[in-house]
Amino acid sequence: MTATAPILELHDVTVAYGRRPVLWNVDLAITEPCLFGVIGPNGAGKSTLLKAALGLVPVVGGYVRFFGAPLARVRGRVGYVPQRETVDWDFPVSVMDVVLMGTYGRLGWLRRPGARERELARHCLDRVGLVGLADRQIGRLSGGQQQRVFLARALAQQADVYLLDEPLAGVDVRSQEQIFEVLAAVRDEGKLVVVVHHDLRTAAEWFDRVALIDMRLVATGPTAEVLTPDNLRRTYSGRVELLEELGRAVAERGRTP
């Protein structure tokens, strides 16, 4: 069984904040390394899904497995990029300091990062195109640069699975392109990259597989098979303001194979 265990498996996962359930009975198993998008409207529970997988919010029903094991046993193989707004960017740390935090999991409590960790951090910064800004205070970066710092920190975790929460929110077009290219390269190294994402157009363009979420799992599978007008309508039902974007996205997808 372990030989064929999915990389990430959510089995019948239900999450509630207080008494209000925000995710119902999600069954999801990702068996192959790929670029995987978690798509859905605001408040659909996309971020909650990642947090539940990471044990950051209590799961009231079901279970989560990475490589067939509970997270606590394989933590070193799982990288995480939280939403950018969760931190105070006026915090007195440099870009290098933040990327080095990615090595803390391996270092443990008492060891401090040394030359090897700095070398790794520099390499990760290079991959996201920020190696020249290593000594800059993080508040003096653009939104896209901040997002890439977070990505570099996750790369420094040297994980096999990456969970990213809205890594493209508030990001300029150039950074967006750059971030997707790095994520695709990570996937090409045989790793699983799970991305919570809100933009349907770029979703259709970049993701190999997607899951549509609206408090429940609406559909999951290869992107082209899942992002159908019917599925999108079911996911975004009753959200009039999104109909236009939806129409555009579907039209776009029709033109590209």
Binding site: K51, L54, G55, L56, V78, Y80, P82, T86, V87, D88, F91, V93, V98, M101, R153
Partner: peptide, 8 residues
């Protein structure tokens, strides 16, 4: 700096 990351 980043409690959710620390927890993760």
């Amino acid at each position: 700096f980043d409690a959710p990351f620390a927890a993760a």
